[in-house]
């Protein structure tokens, strides 16, 4: 096999993910690196369903279902209990964008600020998909959802969750997507290695029904999100050391990403809005590039050691 992805599976088939579900694949690939001494905490999200209806379930690790807004703190409680029992089990909070960006943000911020020894993974499909595609604060500017119809598409840019997490100065935060499995695997391993504090992974996860596209375009869509710099792959250590982990070969226009998905129809129909988005993407990318370079300079300067 060309890939460094482990062959061992920790997710049984028979999951209830839709055809081409990026969230399901995200879980499958992340689990391969997590191994079997791990516990997953699932707040309300697609995965509450995907794991299967009682009395069956798919994952080969324990899964604790919890309320929508509590993933980070229930994971904290579990970790505390495991620690007091002398166990080093990895505890992962696995939340959708709603359970991360919106309703889950308070508990997430609390856990991040306290630097809890957990891994928080957001699989972000950029809307409330489980309830039928309603907008969230992760929904990008100009997007159609059932609560931001074509006549009034999403009026605000996507919330900068990575910026928020970086501002908490947690040891490790990274973006990733299953379209780049080796990058994803490495980041999961890095997150595991950074144990002792809060780790955050932001995984862009395609939702074919919610993104209005064919199931077999799921990987291509996530790949284009990266290639167009709409979703750059990078990591942030201690909230300040930025590193871009994948440099797109050439600047690909954002429309290449948007045109694959029906949800961006309002955006593609509005040149001014599209230009605004294009500029936002560019600006964000250059911000990251600058931070990346700044981190390199600091690392190579004599004072670099003080960064930590």
């Amino acid at each position: 096999m060309r890939w460094a992805v482990p062959e061992a599976e920790f997710m049984d088939p028979g999951t209830l993910g839709c055809q081409g579900c990026g969230g399901t694949l995200s879980m499958r690939l992340v689990l391969k690196e997590l191994g079997d001494d791990a516990i997953a905490v699932l707040p309300a999200c697609c995965w509450s369903i995907i794991d299967g209806p009682w009395p069956v379930h798919a994952l080969n690790i324990p899964v604790f279902h919890t309320a929508f807004e509590t993933a980070a703190v229930v994971a904290t409680g579990i970790k505390a209990a495991k620690q007091i029992k002398g166990k080093d089990t990895t505890v992962v909070a696995w939340a959708g964008d709603g359970g991360t960006f919106d309703i889950g943000l308070q508990a997430l911020s609390g856990a991040a600020e306290r630097n809890e020894d957990i891994v928080f993974i957001c699989y972000d499909n950029e809307a409330y998909m489980n309830t039928g595609i309603q907008r969230s604060s992760a929904t990008p500017l100009g997007t159609w959802t059932t609560t931001t119809p074509d006549e009034r598409p999403e009026p605000r840019p996507k919330k900068d969750i990575m910026g928020i997490m970086a501002a908490h100065r947690i040891p490790y935060a990274a973006t990733a997507t299953v379209a780049y499995p080796d990058d994803l695997s490495r980041k999961v391993r890095t997150a595991l290695a950074a144990k002792g504090g809060m780790r955050f992974l932001h995984l862009l996860s395609a939702c074919p029904p919610g993104w209005k596209m064919a199931a077999d375009d799921a990987i291509e869509a996530m790949r284009r999100a990266v290639q167009t710099n709409v979703f750059p792959l990078y990591e942030v250590r201690d909230g300040r050391e930025y590193k871009i982990t994948h440099w797109p070969e050439a600047e690909v226009d954002v429309a290449d990403y948007f045109s694959l998905q029906g949800r961006f129809a309002p955006l593609l129909a509005d040149d001014a809005l599209l230009n605004l988005v294009r500029n936002n993407v560019r600006e964000r990318w250059w911000f990251l590039v600058e931070r990346h370079q700044q981190s390199l300079r600091k690392a190579s300067s004599p004072d670099g050691a003080h960064l930590h």
Partner: peptide, 14 residues
């Protein structure tokens, strides 16, 4: 979150 943390801790056997 206080109760949620207790839920997690108790679920993990504490």
């Amino acid at each position: 979150s206080a109760m949620a943390a207790c839920v997690g801790a108790s679920a993990a056997g504490a």
